Computed example of a mutant assay.
Amino acid sequence: MLSKERMVRIVQLLEERQFVTVKELQESFDVSRSSVMRDLIELENQGLIQRERGGASLKSVSTTLTNFNEMSVVSKENLNMEEKKLICAHAARSIRDGDCIYIDSGTTPAHILDYIQDKRIKLVTPSIYLIRKLPASFKGDIFLLGGEFNKSYDTSYGSLTLEMIRQFHFDHAFLSTNGIDLENGNVYVFDFNVGACKKAIMECSEKCDLLIDASKYGVKAMCNWASLKDFHSVYVDAYEEAREIPDNFLVCKGEDENEDK
Rank of each mutant, 00 (worst) to 15 (best):
A242Q: 11
T155F: 12
L144R: 05
M71V: 03
S233W: 07
A89M: 14
E183T: 05
H90N: 08
K199E: 14
L25A: 04
D230I: 12
S227M: 12
Q167R: 15
L175P: 06
D191C: 04
F231K: 11
L13W: 02
I131N: 07
E27F: 04
H172S: 14
D247V: 13
G185L: 10
N258P: 01
M202T: 11
N193W: 10
D114A: 14
Y153S: 15
M71N: 07
G106E: 02
V73E: 04
V219N: 11
S156Q: 02
M164V: 07
M202S: 13
A91T: 07
C223N: 10
F138A: 06
M1N: 03
S215F: 04
D39V: 00
W225Q: 02
S34I: 12
S127L: 03
P109F: 04
T161R: 05
D118L: 03
S57M: 10
L145A: 04
C252G: 03
A136W: 13
T64A: 01
L58R: 06
D114W: 07
Q50L: 13
R6I: 01
S215N: 15
V31N: 00
D99W: 01
F19P: 01
L43M: 02
K229A: 11
A136K: 08
A238E: 13
R51F: 00
K261Q: 15
K216Q: 09
S28I: 06
E27P: 06
L160T: 15
Y239E: 05
M37A: 04
F168T: 12
E44A: 07
E70V: 06
I201F: 08
D237L: 10
A242F: 08
F192Q: 04
Q12A: 08
K253D: 02
N80V: 12
A91R: 09
L250K: 15
V189D: 11
L48T: 04
K85G: 01
V234K: 12
N248G: 06
S28K: 09
A136S: 13
V219T: 15
T108F: 08
S227G: 07
V219C: 11
H111Q: 05
K85Q: 14
S233N: 13
S57G: 08
V20D: 00
K119P: 01
M1Y: 14
R120G: 05
A226W: 10
R38K: 13
L86A: 09
Y129W: 11
D181N: 15
K253Y: 12
I165A: 02
G179S: 10
F249M: 05
V251R: 11
L2N: 09
N45E: 15
E5P: 03
Q117W: 00
M81H: 11
N258C: 08
A196F: 10
E42M: 05
D230C: 12
L48E: 02
G140K: 03
